[in-house]
Design a protein around this nucleic acid. Structure first.
Lengths: 362, 362
DNA sequence: TTGAAAGCGTTACCAT
DNA sequence: ATGGTAACGCTTTCAA
């Protein structure tokens, strides 16, 4: 039997004041029509502490018609990022008394059901993760409708919902940073392993953005892009297919007449496959070829050597999404944000060596 | 401007009945003092549908003094499992109109703060993940206190909170299954890579349990255990240390006079390290040595060959925890549960070959 | 079989 | 500067 929690009435009674006074005091409400004297204030605060009073969000919610809940509609596909995203949301939401409620789905039908559920829960805002999901048209329409009513709906890791503010990975800036890094290490032949449809800007904006950043930096340096298209992976599954795609790209790369001394790979899983292809040909990483990975954080650590890479800053993304959501709620000006990835220097890249120079241009 | 949602009053008015009738109908309340005729029932249902009415959980919560929220207090350490656990909880909670609210923490102070927050949110139940956290005494005490009031608190992946129902990994059964599998493949020299303190039953119950299951099966088969203690890993961090620990164990194993033809490794990260050690000595997996991993799901897929392993059934664990929580709430008999892991057959184990037989006993 | 009234804990508004 | 009162949307209980 849980002890009966004290209510605002108990505090009011014990402090010899009325309910509203307690409410005003404990919420530090200054611009209220209710003004309280310092003595009263102190007394109320003391009594509240003595009684171990914490206001019930249930009552508050009903009175204010606010749930103080921010919903997170997440795809099971990118589970690995979920915890960090939630944490980011929490970072921003907590100070505003908000808490994240999570709705995870594995397919469009579940997605629709969980979306409904989130509305039934009367979430005050909704962060929708459309990453890696071939967005279902019906669901997108539903999101769009909701957003068009002014409801704070933020898209995360996706570009599926029209006319909605979102948080994206800053593919182009990330690619620039990656390329720049390798340039600074002295590399001049820098390859890019990327989704084979990277040039289809409309549908593969991520790959396109990444490629654009890569090319921009190389062009500025007067160097030629060397793109190695990696086969598309249909089933995201557990990632095996991605690795296989990387192995394939790795072999392609080795077959080039003039082999790059460094490679950037979109997707750390692909990078892992690339490394495997190199190793199985007797090449050493990074001595013979530097490999710089991108995106997923979880894999980067597992190669030998561990992959230097840029990893999605999931927590920051969560924070950014929450900021936008609260911005909309509070009618502050906010806009779509691109979050730069996090630099994880490890052992798979190194400065261009003399022997590499020789190997390349004999 | 979000459209005003219809309230129960709107429905009542439109259907020409009173609020309680609507409430009774829409909740299919049979054992209520309020009985409604089939016609009325149908009319109410129709009107509700027409108005697109969905009851507000805010009002219901206040009236029933139930938040319909199950809290999940998770450690950031095992982020990878978070999404699956949440999903499992969702599986059980949703049909009961409950939703999971997630509270993630990175250290004991945050843990305490998030715990408080969850109580402030008036969660009706709390699932506490103490995995891998050297449980903070103060927090444990707080959990215990709460649980002792009859509050539905369930410990997940840990044994830190006394007198509390929990969901655990079934280490012993898992080890038995793993060992049995290798026996059935014909192996007779089966090694176990496990935390160096595995024999300290009290503090390292996981390792102990796993070892026990392993030994039990071997004994029954009249075989000798071959334990290779892996160095303790202090900083869980990103897992690099675990892999290093596995590499170390792998080298130890290779130095044995009579080398096992198969190894079970507690922790897939360690298994990964073991594989690396083997490969770097020119041994092939599974041709020369079979390697069977355990526990984390995320890594198992990344080795070459991918690791056959038993992986923690996180979603099932979440389900089990939720079931216990609801059981306590509804005063049904429930008890601590051990969840068996999931069998993920992949490429790192194979039947004992003739050549292996020869190598071992020349 | 139904309606009416009270109450859940809080906040907002209007009096004093 | 403070208190009273109504309201939020729903459920529960009692009366009809």
């Amino acid at each position: 039997m849980a002890k009966q929690r004290p209510t605002i009435r108990d505090v009011a009674l014990a402090a010899g004041v009325s309910g509203p006074v307690v409410s005003t005091v404990l919420n530090n409400r200054t611009e209220s029509t209710v003004r309280v004297s310092p003595q009263t204030r102190e007394r109320v605060e003391r009594v509240a502490r003595e009684l171990n009073y914490t206001p019930s969000i249930l009552g508050r919610s009903l009175a204010q018609q606010k749930s103080y809940i921010v919903g997170l509609l997440l795809s099971a596909v990118n589970s690995p990022l979920a915890a960090e995203v939630i944490r980011g949301v929490q970072d921003i939401a907590s100070p505003q008394r908000y808490s994240p409620m999570v709705f995870i789905h594995g397919n469009p039908e579940e997605e629709a059901a969980e979306f409904e559920r989130s509305l039934d829960r009367r979430v005050d805002a909704l962060i929708v993760d459309t990453f890696d999901t071939p967005a279902d048209a019906g669901n997108v329409e539903a999101y769009r409708n909701l957003a068009s009513t002014g409801f704070p709906l933020v898209e995360l890791f996706g570009m599926s919902i029209p006319d909605v503010l979102r948080v994206n990975v800053d593919f182009e800036a990330d690619a620039r940073r990656a390329t720049q890094h390798l340039l600074e290490l002295g590399h001049r032949r820098i390859g890019l392993v990327v989704h084979e449809h990277y040039h289809k800007k409309e549908t593969h904006w991520a790959g396109w953005g990444f490629y654009s950043g890569y090319r921009a930096v190389l062009e500025k340096a007067g160097l030629e892009p060397i793109v190695i298209p990696a086969p598309a992976v249909t089933a995201p599954g557990d990632g095996l297919a991605f690795i296989e795609s990387g192995r394939y790209a790795g072999r392609e790369l080795l077959a080039l007449a003039e082999r790059p001394t460094a490679v950037i790979s979109y997707s750390n899983r692909r990078a892992y496959g690339v490394v495997q292809a190199f190793l199985s040909e007797g090449l050493k990483v990074p001595e013979d070829v530097s490999v710089l990975g991108y995106y997923e954080r979880d894999v980067a650590v597992l190669t030998d050597p561990p992959l230097s890479s840029l990893c999605v800053a999931a927590r920051e993304a969560g924070q950014a999404a929450a900021k936008i959501a609260f911005g909309i709620m509070q009618r502050k000006p906010v806009e779509t944000v691109a979050v730069a990835s996090e630099w994880m220097p490890r052992g798979s890249t190194s400065a261009l060596s003399a022997s590499q120079r020789n190997t390349i241009r004999p």
